[in-house]
């Protein structure tokens, strides 16, 4: 049994609005063990990024964390002192943001930006620092000369690689990648996914990989969590889950992955996600669910329970 690295318990993160709070992350629990890649998938607006920000305690107003615990190696990141958190950031948990386009400071050279992260946490000589930055750039498939460039001199794919290099700079235990391939075209996307897979074998880190791109998830993750309307509806071994999704939403989502080998009509998920200011009572998927049980599903909220080996599902169909 591998050790648990990150344990998220009953995390609740809302956004303040004039009418009612948006319940973007509502009572979410999951854990990440050492050296595993956990995928988190779901439609846009289901709370994936909010979850990422909340774990890093980077959620900005009007967002706020209402409750729960984020236990990283036993200590609750939501409760520790600002200074202690600052020391944990990047050294232990790094982050690959949604758009690497804007994640780099336009007026600083790449070496300064990567170096900034390193010297903030470690004592290191100038020569070693330079060597380290060059090695990092090479490890993500870039030329060492990129170090002297400014972000605007790089392409989108190159910037994404820089950000990945930056995320690996301090050998963190956990990397949170928030849609690392979203802003890129398909060809570059594949390169980045390949890179992520490569570093996974080299690196000792665990990765939380957030994306709405199921195809990208399929290629890389060990375990997969499916999120819907602020809640995790299913979580389990990725292969197993892809082959045999149990929750009606997971099934719909996975059958929506286009396939080249099979000729089939693409199915979407009919309907729209609920307004998270006033989510439906009971199961949040109830209004769109093809297997709903009136009188039960719209009254009683299903809890995440283990239905088979290492597979948790929140659905009344499995009891």
């Amino acid at each position: 049994m591998p050790d648990t690295l990150l344990d998220v318990r009953n995390l609740i993160a809302y956004y303040m609005t004039p009418t009612a709070p948006v319940r973007a992350v509502d009572n979410v629990s999951f854990n990440v063990t050492e050296k595993e890649i956990l995928g988190i998938a779901g439609e846009s607006g289901c709370g994936k990024s909010t979850l990422a920000y909340s774990i890093l305690r980077l959620l900005k107003p009007p967002g706020y964390i209402r409750g729960g615990e984020v236990l990283f190696k036993g200590s609750d990141l939501l409760k520790i002192e600002e200074e202690e958190l600052r020391r944990i950031r990047w050294k232990h948990i790094s982050y690959i943001p949604q758009s690497s386009m804007n994640a780099l400071n336009p007026v600083m050279r790449i070496e300064e930006q990567i170096g900034d992260a390193i010297i903030n946490h470690e004592k290191i000589s100038k020569g070693e620092l330079r060597k380290r930055i060059e090695d990092l750039l090479v490890s993500v498939g870039l030329s060492p000369s990129v170090a002297h460039m400014y972000p605007h001199e790089l392409s989108g794919g190159m910037r994404q690689r820089v950000v990945i290099a930056m995320a690996m700079a301090l050998d963190p235990e956990l990397i949170i990648a928030d849609e690392p391939t979203t802003a890129l075209d398909v060809v570059v996307q594949r390169g980045i996914l390949q890179l992520l897979r490569d570093i996974r074998s080299k690196l000792k880190a665990s990765v939380i990989m957030i994306t709405h791109d199921m195809a990208a998830q399929a290629q890389i993750v060990d375990r997969l969590a499916i999120m819907y309307a602020g809640k995790i509806v299913e979580i389990g071994d990725a292969n197993d889950l892809f082959n045999d999704p149990l929750h009606p939403y997971s099934r719909a989502l996975i059958s929506a992955i286009p396939s080249i080998s099979e000729k089939k009509k693409l199915k979407g998920v009919p309907g729209f996600p609920p307004d998270l200011r006033s989510p439906p009572p009971g199961c949040r998927f109830y209004p769109r669910c093809p297997h709903r049980i009136p009188g039960k599903c719209n009254v009683d909220e299903p809890r995440l329970i283990e239905v088979k080996n290492d597979r948790l599902v929140a659905c009344h169909l499995y009891r």
């Binding site: 944990i88 790094s94 992260a117």
Partner: peptide, 8 residues
């Protein structure tokens, strides 16, 4: 945000 995540 990134700079903050870096722990600066």
């Amino acid at each position: 945000l990134m700079a903050e995540a870096k722990g600066l």
